[in-house]
Amino acid sequence: MNRYSTILRRCLPRFSSSSACFNSTLVIADHTEEALLPLALRTITAAKQIGNPITCLVAGPKIDAAVETLKKVDDIEKILTVESDQLKGWLPEVMTDVVLNAQKQFNFTHIMSGASSTGKNFAPRLASLLDVSLISDIVGIKNSETFLRTIYAGNATMELKSLDKIKLITVRGTAFDPVSIGSANVAVEKLSIEANAQENVKWINSELTKSERPELTAASRVVAGGRGMKSGENFKLLYDLADKLNAAVGASRAAVDAGFVSNDLQVGQTGKIVAPELYVAIGISGAIQHLAGMKDSKTIVAINKDPDAPIFQVADLGLVADLFKAVPEINEKIDKYMSK
C-alpha cells in the first residue's frame, strides 16, 4: 500500500466526507514530448514547502519520458496521467478541462504549475473556472496560505495571504532549487478523462529555436547582449564566449527589437527570468525592465563602455571597455583561467 492511501485511510475516521478531508497539492508537471522539464522539479520543491502530500499530473500528447523521470522522485505520492493527441500544443482550452476533471475527482486544496508560457496560459483560465484568484509567479512560501511574489518589475515584493478555498499558484522556477531524482517507484494512475473536443481553436504548429546550448532559464551561466552589440552578426562573439563557458545566450529587449536575436532569448520583466551563478551583461545599459529578469543572479559581470550605465549599479564586477575589444580578448584568454 502506498503512502497516499495510508494518509487517506488515516484521515477517514475523523471526517465524513472523504475527498475533502485533508490538504493535498496537485503539481501540474511541465514537460515536453521528449522529457520532463527542470521547472517541474523546482515546482515540486515549492509544493514540498506547503507541506501537503503531493500528486503530480502529467498531461500531454506524449508523456512516457516525463513519467519515467517523475516516477523516481521520492517526494511525490502519486502520478496522474492523461495522454491525448488533443493536448498537442498544450492548448489552455483543453488543459483546463483535464485539470478540472482531475480536481472534481480529488479535491486538491493547492494546485501548482511552473510559471512557464504553458502554465501562465492555462492556470489563470483554470482559476476563474474555479472562481478563485490566481497567485502568479511566486518566489517564496511562508505557509500554506501565505506567499511572496514580486510586483513592479521586481522592484517590490508582496507578501499576500490568499483568502480563497483553493490556492491556485504558478511558481517562478529560479526561486526554488529542483528536487533530486531518487529511486522511488511512484504509483501511476491513468485518468480516464477525455479532453473535450474544441471546435473553436486549432493548434497549427510551432517554430522552436534550435540550440545546442543550455536552456536559458535552467543554465548556470548566461551571457547576454544588448543594443551595444550593434548587429546580429556580432552576437558571434557572445556565442563563442558562451560555448567556452557552457553558458546560455540571452538578450535585452533592445537587442531583440533590433532583430539581432529571436524573441525567446529576451531576459526581463516581459521575457525570461533567470538567476544563474554567473550572468555576463555585454553592451546592456541595464533598464529596470531588464534588471527584473536577472538581478537575482549570484554574480553579475557588466561590460559596457559607458561608465554611468545603470547596469554597473548591480554588477559585482564591472569592466568599462569597448566590448569589441574586451570580448575577443576574453575569448582568447579565458581558457587559461577556466577550472578544469
Binding site: 500544443g89 492548448l91 512557464s116 508560457s117 504553458t118 471546435e199 473553436n200 481553436v201 486549432k202 493548434w203 497549427i204 504548429n205 510551432s206 517554430e207 522552436l208 529555436t209 532559464t217 529571436s262 524573441n263 525567446d264 525570461k272
Partner: peptide
C-alpha cells in the same frame, strides 16, 4: 510567443 520560439494557432 512561447518559451523556445513561436506557435501558430487558429481560432474561431
Amino acid at each position: 510567443e512561447i518559451d523556445g520560439g513561436l506557435e501558430y494557432v487558429e481560432y474561431k
